[in-house]
Every structure is written in C-alpha cells, then in structure tokens.
Design a binder for these strands. Structure first.
Lengths: 215, 215
DNA sequence: ATAAAAATTGAATGATTATTCAATACAAAA
DNA sequence: TTTTGTATTGAATAATCATTCAATTTTTAT
C-alpha cells in the first residue's frame, strides 16, 4: 500500500520522520474526531479512518486508546503554552500591551475555535476522574496563574490601582476566558471571538479606568 | 422482595406515589453516579444499583438510558430555574439587593457543589452533539439572560452608569459563573464558594464604584 | 536482486453494556 | 383464599469496541 514517508536521508532519520508523521496524523485525527463526534463517540476505528491508517495500527502506535487521548490533550496544552510563552518572552513591551497580547491570543481563531474548545471541554468534564488529565490541566494553570499575577501587579503599580489585587484580577480573567470559551460552543452566532475579546477588554477597562488601550 | 411503597390511600394514588418515588430515586442515583464516576463511566447497572432497583427496571422505567440522562439534566435545570425564579418574584426588593441574592444563589452550596457541577459540565461537554441537551441548556440561558439584562439596566439607571451596557454586564457575569464553577471542580481548596462569590461581588464593585453593598 | 528488518494491515477475540423479556413477587379485588 | 393485574427481577441477547496478533507489505542493508 501507499507509504507516508516524507524524508529518506538515513535509515534512522527516515524512521524517525515517518513515526512523527503518523504520530501527528493520529493526534490531529483524534482532536478532529472529538470535535466532530464528541468524546463519548470517539472510537479508535473513527480516529484511524480519519488518519487513514488501520485500526490495529492506531492502537499499536499509541499502546492504548487512553494513551492516545492523553497525548492529544498534552499536544493541545503544549500548543497553548507555546503561543502564550512567546508573548511573555517578548522584551521591550509595556505590561499593558503584553496583557492585551494575551487577551488577543486567548481569543485568536487559532486558539479559541470550536474544534479546540470542544476538545478542551470534553477533557475538562473528565478531569475529576482521570488523574492524568488533571495533571496536564493543572500544570498548565499553575504557570499561567503565576505569570499572570506578576503581570497584573506590574500594571497595578503603573496605574496606581489598589482596590483590586493581582490575584483577584487574574482569577477573574481566567474564569471569564473559560466561561466565554464554553459559550462560544453554545452559541457561536452571539459569542464571536471579537465579542468575547471586547467583553474582556471592557472588564479591564472597568479596573483600569484611565487606561485607553482597553477601550 | 421489599416494596418501596410509601402511600397507600387508593389504588391509583398509591401507584402514582410509587412511580414518583422510583422515578426520583433513579434521577438522584443518576446524578450521583455521574458525579462519582463521570458520564463516560455511568452505566445503567451502576445507576440501578445505587437506586436499589434492578437493572432491567431502570431501563424499563425510563425507556432508555438516553431518556434517563435527559430527565436528569431536565431535573437539574428545573431545580436551578426554580431557585432563581423565586428571587425574581420577590416584591419590594431593591434591584441591587436582588442581584446580590442572585449571586448568593449561584454560589450557594445547594447549587454550586461538586456533585452538581460535575453533572453540568458532563452535559455541557456533549451539548454540541445532542440536540436534546442543547435545547434544555439554551432554554434556561434565554430566560436567564433576559431577566438579568433587565435587572442590570435598572441598576445602571439608579447608579447612573453609562459606560457598561446591561448586555455586557450580564454576559460577563454569566461567563464568570460558568468559569468559576469549572474551577471549583478543578481546585476546590482555592475556589471555595465564598471565594468565588467575593470575586463576583468585586467585579460588580468595579462597575458600580459608589455602591457599598458589593464590597 | 535478495534477505532481513520494520511497518502496517485487518480479521478474530474478549470485555463491556444497553436492552429485552419470560418468570416471579406483590397488591387489590372478588 | 383465590384470582387478576401490575411491578419488578435477573438472566439472556445483541451490539459495540478496545485490543491482539498472524499475515502481508514496504523499506533498508547486503
């Protein structure tokens, strides 16, 4: 049958590349399948078909369905972390501009689209029962919260804002994002990415009254 | 075997009561099972065992598993709607006090406890794939949003607040509640009901700066 | 070109689980 | 008590699905 080989340099490298290609094809197919059919109706057979490999191979490649699901969640988490770490690594950027970049990222079409949100919520709903899901989600949250609170405290200082603590602002933002993502799934007509982003900006406007960039 | 009969007045009434008792026992058991094991691992056998009826009976009583799940979601939705409608029906109450009552209700232990939140999120995660779940959730949201926006517009008038529209405030609140419920599930140590309630009150404080009741 | 190794297939297996239904237990009526 | 109708059981059924693995195809090395 057809081969998915892309790179043939040396034996080992070709093998590595090939493995990577199928690995990623299966993860992508898993995410798409969950988004299209829901986690409850996501079977190895569906994923394999979408990835255009045999059912047996999908299982062989990832050892188990559970492992495939965890790998897919980890992939999403890494993707999110990367896009967001990039913003925190930028130098010579004003804290307020940085937080605006964060907000834009959280509601960019790459991050906040119906496919990916479906998958996040599917995993969230099982977090309580799967320690491995919980670990991935919590690890992400932790770093996020830390850096976010630090950023807010800088902004508070600049804006001479004392009424709302960094923790409060950070938590409020975080819960708004989670809530809005959920609502994008419910009713995408009303909850466009633009609408959500503006709602969050307005929240910051209510905290930092004199800062025009949030308007 | 044992009978669950509670009321024996007349033939028909006894029958009615008995039906209700088992009906509710099964719905309660479904909610508890989803909360304890997750939706993915909720089988008729588990529910029946918890409700102390036979597996065959559980299925017979509700026609299908799907129907039992929908009935359970409807029950939760009704329960929420009732507690919240009661607040809106109260007469001689200031709009600000009313919205504070709403917030207290949304984070009361009766509504915002881990069992019930697990179930909500489990259903949310399938909403995209089950029109019947979506219908129940949307119907609830609609009434909620309408009444909430009206309430906020009254408060805006009193507070002479023009920067934030009723829709914006209502949507922000709504998404915060959804987001915070999710976080109660993740990390109940940090996200106590009290913590969440105060976070929301602080948000309102940022909008209605001169209103001390939100402090 | 041929052999050896690795990748991939797909059909069989076994476990799980919703659903059915014949048999039984129970309550009400006679 | 006996009969009749209803409620409830629990074991059998059938469908679904993850997982396994012997057979096949493809790739690499000689």
């Amino acid at each position: 049958m057809m081969k998915a080989l892309v790179n043939k340099k040396s034996s080992e490298q070709a093998s590595e590349t090939e493995i990577s290609v199928n690995h990623q094809k299966l993860i992508d197919a898993t995410i798409e399948t969950i988004a299209k059919r829901g986690l409850a109706d996501t079977t190895i057979a569906h994923v394999a078909k979408r990835a255009k490999v045999s059912q047996g191979y999908a299982n062989f490649r990832f050892k188990s369905k559970d492992n495939l699901l965890i790998s897919s969640l980890q992939y999403l988490s890494d993707e999110y972390k990367k896009s967001w770490q990039k913003i925190f690594e930028e130098k010579n950027i004003d804290p307020i501009d940085r937080i605006i970049r964060i907000i834009q990222n959280d509601f960019s079409s790459k991050i906040a689209n119906r496919n990916k949100i479906s998958v996040w919520i599917a995993f969230y709903s099982e977090v309580k029962f799967r320690p491995s899901y919980l670990a991935i989600c919590q690890r992400q949250d932790e770093i996020y919260s830390q850096q976010m609170e630090k950023l807010v405290s800088e902004i508070n200082k600049i804006a001479n804002q004392k009424e709302f603590t960094p923790k409060e602002v950070s938590e409020t933002y975080h819960s708004m994002v989670d809530g809005l993502w959920q609502r994008i799934l419910f009713d995408p007509k009303i909850y466009t990415n633009e609408f959500c982003k503006n709602l969050v900006l307005k929240y910051f406007k209510s905290i930092y009254v004199n800062e025009d960039r949030f308007a």
